[in-house]
């Protein structure tokens, strides 16, 4: 017992004061990219050619956040001239079209489905479907339950059955073998239900794009309400998106 108390004392209170106090991520963290449209065409093209995800449109000077895996190649090649990654983790969007960007994402709160706020603003139960990803997306959703993020203090929980859930959170590129399970989970969730796609894989197929074993984007199967880009999205990105969209 004494040892329990001693550890309790040593651990202290670790819960972040976010959203009241913002969280600062380290300088190497690659958050929201900002594209500089005023660069020579050859630089933009070199970046587009080096992008493993075909996420850069050199002509339009835009970047597809749903495809990007935040590898940082484009930033390196252009020395930060064309693409520069900021420490801004607020990357969630409500419309697929918003994923193609130069870095100025529309205000998520303004695009959130207002009726969801009324329905789920005080209590939101989510079922996670892990559909063939690398598991990093799932791991960084999982940590939202740890003391630092403490998602439950906002009334949001992950539950063990779609029957208990208000919506599903899908990660991974949805392999052929996971498609049926995913669709059944969706059907088993009572209406009205929310669909959230997390990570480059669920948004576009991610690093698996082009394979005929996977689905290139959850939105081709289900109506997606909230898109959270990243590979994986930082837990703060997930937290920000959930709070802004539902609160």
């Amino acid at each position: 017992m004494l040892s329990v108390l001693k550890n309790r004392f040593e651990q202290g209170c670790r819960t972040s004061r976010y959203p009241k106090v913002n969280v600062q991520l380290p300088s190497r963290y690659r958050g929201r990219p900002v594209v500089n449209a005023d660069v020579p065409a050859d630089l933009a093209e070199a970046c587009a050619a080096a992008c493993p995800q075909e996420a850069i449109d050199a002509k339009a000077r835009t970047l597809h956040l749903g495809r990007c895996v935040f590898c940082g190649n484009c930033e390196r090649i252009s020395g930060g001239q064309f693409v520069r990654f900021t420490q801004n983790f607020e990357n969630g969007v409500a419309e697929k079209a918003h994923l193609v960007t130069q870095g100025d994402l529309p205000d998520l709160a303004a695009h959130a489905r207002q009726h969801f706020k009324g329905l789920f603003g005080r209590s939101l139960q989510l079922r996670q479907v892990s559909a063939a990803g690398c598991n990093a997306c799932e791991a960084d959703l999982n940590v939202l339950a740890t003391p630092f993020f403490d998602l439950a203090r906002f009334g949001i929980n992950f539950v063990a059955s779609p029957r208990h859930a208000d919506g599903i959170v899908v990660t991974g590129p949805i392999s052929r073998n996971m498609k049926t399970a995913l669709m059944q989970t969706y059907e088993a969730t009572p209406q009205p239900r929310v669909v959230i796609a997390v990570g480059s894989c669920a948004l576009s197929g991610g690093p698996f794009r082009g394979s005929n074993e996977i689905t290139e984007g959850l939105d081709s199967l289900l109506p997606v309400d909230l898109f959270i880009p990243g590979c994986p999205p930082h837990p703060m990105t997930n937290l920000h998106a959930l709070l802004t969209f539902f609160k």
Binding site: P26, R30, F70, V143
Partner: peptide
Amino acid sequence: GRMRGDFLNMTLLLCGNRFGK
């Protein structure tokens, strides 16, 4: 659970990604 996150954050510090990507 919390300390695991603190170690992942060290990898984040090193390379900008908690999983070393």
